[in-house]
Every structure is written in structure tokens, then in C-alpha cells.
Design a protein around this nucleic acid. Sequence first.
DNA 1: CGTGTACTTGAGTGGGCTCAAGCAGGGTGG
DNA 2: CCACCCTGCTTGAGCCCACTCAAGTACACG
Lengths: 241, 241
Amino acid sequence: MTRIPPTVRCQGRSNCFDCTLRHEMVCSEVTLNELIDFHTGIEDFDYDHGAALFSKDAPTEGVYCIRHGAVKIVKYDPVGGQRIIRVLKKGDVAGLESAFGDSYEHTAMAVGEVRACRVPIEYFRTFVSQHGNLQMRLLRTSQATLRETESWLSELTVGNLSARTRMARLMLRLRVTDDGDRIHRFGVEDMAAILGITAETVSRVVSDLVREGILVKGGKSFATRYFRGDLPALEKIAREA
Amino acid sequence: MTRIPPTVRCQGRSNCFDCTLRHEMVCSEVTLNELIDFHTGIEDFDYDHGAALFSKDAPTEGVYCIRHGAVKIVKYDPVGGQRIIRVLKKGDVAGLESAFGDSYEHTAMAVGEVRACRVPIEYFRTFVSQHGNLQMRLLRTSQATLRETESWLSELTVGNLSARTRMARLMLRLRVTDDGDRIHRFGVEDMAAILGITAETVSRVVSDLVREGILVKGGKSFATRYFRGDLPALEKIAREA
DNA sequence: CGTGTACTTGAGTGGGCTCAAGCAGGGTGG
DNA sequence: CCACCCTGCTTGAGCCCACTCAAGTACACG
């Protein structure tokens, strides 16, 4: 029984073999045919700046593999304020926290242009329930996300550290790739919602860093803009008491 | 084949049937005999104020079910500072995050007197690997911990909220039981490490709340001391902008 | 009864907040 | 093509909360 290869099933745009989710899925129990089957129903989507991949309390309809761009995960305070608790980049998977619940825990929103492919939730669940090893893998992933969230929040939201230090740490975490100096450039309101400070303070701190040449603005539109960062300088600031 | 009942295997002190971990474990796949077997090797421990249940980077040797008291989970900054990222109370399980790794991710330390029982890690792993459903349950538990940590950190560490508001929120989260007004009374340094503010500020804010009668100090020694809180008043303060 | 640790309280400083105005630049419509 | 607007960003002035440094107090324990 021959099958159409995954790249075609994914409408020729997704490169499913790069996908983190695929690495999650592949193990000794899973055959290539199953994997190809798995790609059935996967759809690609483009999102403009500010568009929601999914919203809090909406029925869970899939998990999303981010293929390009950055996605902010937003949590709403009981008091009304909103807080960005995590940022997903290329290769990350969105919605896993809600994959076994009825509705999404958070809102996921595109920052700049985003490309993502969606795995329908029914298929995801079926696949997981049929492959015991996957549960263990997902468990490890979940624990890794927990660690990541702990350090994200504990390093960026320390009240008694200066806004400048926390901003430097944020910039280092928003690097597009692990090896380059290109940094996702969020809006000032977004950065404020991450660090738990005001937009004015964010603007002041960023302006200082730009004036000092530690950050360089690039790109025109919201969709394509970025920073280039002087990484050693940022690391030095990030270490300051 | 008759077996000694769990309460006896647990040296007569643990009431294993109250344990959260047990609820985690019990499902259709697990028979009573297996459950009794599971209790083999479980030991009870008492910890004084400040004693470590386990330390970061120490080899994983078990998971701990907290039977009495409060345990702080400490994470060490790369910079050197320490931060309390979670607090476990009666019925919670400590060390699950590290159950499938070689060493502990965090340090767990007793606040006041603590009683806990330890499940040896080899037995825990064996048991989990033999019962497929458990992995799914642990996955859900892990995701619940993730949610809890997200809201814990995002509600308590907002920089632009007053220390008083955040302290009120912390007090509400440190309640010994869900229905009473008794509150775990941590040291000022500990509360500072949770909220990301200085110990002096903690002292000032707590002193104010005590003077206003919203908090009432009780107990003498570190081991037994506590607050009683005026919950409606605390909730009002917690809601303030 | 002395000693140490944890906590309290004060005075002064400063970083980040608030309020408010000005600016830049991309998009729209005339 | 320009005028306009609208949104997001910048910058300023003044204030206030929390930090720092420092001294004083309470209390548990030997």
C-alpha cells in the first residue's frame, strides 16, 4: 500500500520532518505509515500580527506547531490585567497544556507574521491513546515546559532587580535562533506584560539600549521588524545585581 | 496469599489511604494487592524547620508525600539569589518533576515541622512503567502543576502591584486548609523570596496587617507558629489595583 | 541570665509609576 | 501626491513606594 508522502499531504508547505511535534511522536512503536497517516488532516495557517491561534475558554480543536515567527501565550488575571507567561518560537508546540481538556487554558496570539500547522485534536488524542510510549514522552515534555516556565517567570519578574537587567534577560530569551543575534521585537505593551512593568519604562529602557548601540532596530512593518543585539553586552547587563 | 495491611507496613503512622499519591495511583488497572505491595519500602520521616527533604543536584532517590506542614520548593538563580517558586502543603507530592531524571531539579525544605513519607524511586518507576494508565494520570498532574505555577508566579510577582496587595494574595494561598482561616506563617526572608521583595518591606507590610487585626499571630516556636487571617479583608486587599 | 537569631522600625534615597504632551510613520481617502 | 489620522512609541516632570543602610527590640534557647 503506497501513500502520498507527508510533504504533499501537508499541501506542500509544511516540512513535517522538521517539526518538533514529529520528533515527539516518533519512537520505536510508530511506523512510517502511521506517521504519514498522522499527517492526515493537518492544515497550514498564516496569521497576521495580533491574530489569535486560539483563545482562552474556546473549545480545544487542535495543537499547533509553530513553523515561523513568535507566539505569545497570554493569561488573564482575575483582576482583569493580562500577563504574557510564555513565548513560543519556531519549532515549539502550542496548546499541549489543553490537549486533554475541553477548552484552552490560555490565549495564543501571533507577534509579527506567524506560520503554523494544526493537528486536529481528535486525531492527536487517538494517536496518543494508541501509542503508550507517547504518554511518557508527553510527560517529559510537560515537565520540561514546567521547568522552562519556572525559570522564565522567576528570572524575569524579580521585583528587586532593575528594569534594565530584566530587559536584557528578556532580549536574550527572545532570540530568533540559538546561534544568531537576531531578536524578536515585541511591542512595548507586550514587553511590559512580560516583565510586569509599565510600557513607559519599557520604552525608556529600550531607547537607552538602542542609543548605546546594544540593540539595533531592523525591519519596517510590525510583521517583519526585529532587533539585532550585542549579545556579550546583554549578558553582562543580565548578570548585574 | 494474605498480606499485612498498608497501615502496618507504613509503621503505623502513615495513613496511606489519605494520600494524594495513592489517589494518583489507584485506577482500574491496579489491584488492592498491588497497592499493598506498592507500600513496601515506604518510610515515614519527620523534618525540623529548615531541614531539606532533598537538595538540588542530589541523586533522585524518591518522591515524597507531604502528610503534615508546609514545604518550600527553592530554585537558585544563575546569579546566586534564591527564589521560592512553589509551596507544597498537606496532601501534595514533592519531587515528581524529577522522578524521571537522575537528580533533583530543586531543593525542598521544611517550613515548621513537617511529616512526609517517601516512595523509593526505583519502585515508583517500576510501578509507573507497569501501569500504562498511570502515565496519563501523571501527565495530567504535571499539567495541573504547570497551571498552578503559572498563576502562582504571575499573581504574586507582578512588579507594578503594591507589596500589600501581593502579600494579601500570598496569605490567601498559604492557608493550611481550604475551609479554615489558619495560615502557614513563613519567615520574613522566605516571604521575601516568594514575592521578590526585601525582607524589610515584608516585615513592614505584615506588621501593618497585624496592627489592623487582619492577621493575628499564633503559636510560639518556628515549628508550630501560624497566622489567623481575616479572609474577607484579605480578599478585598488582594483585589485592589 | 546572657546570647544569638529573627524581626522591627527609622531616615534618606532612588527607580519606576502616573499623568500628560509631543512625535513618527504607515495607511487611507480625497 | 499630499493631508490627515490613528496607533504606537518617546520623552518630560513630579511623586511615591520600596530599597538601602543602620540601629534597636523581642524572644527562644542554652
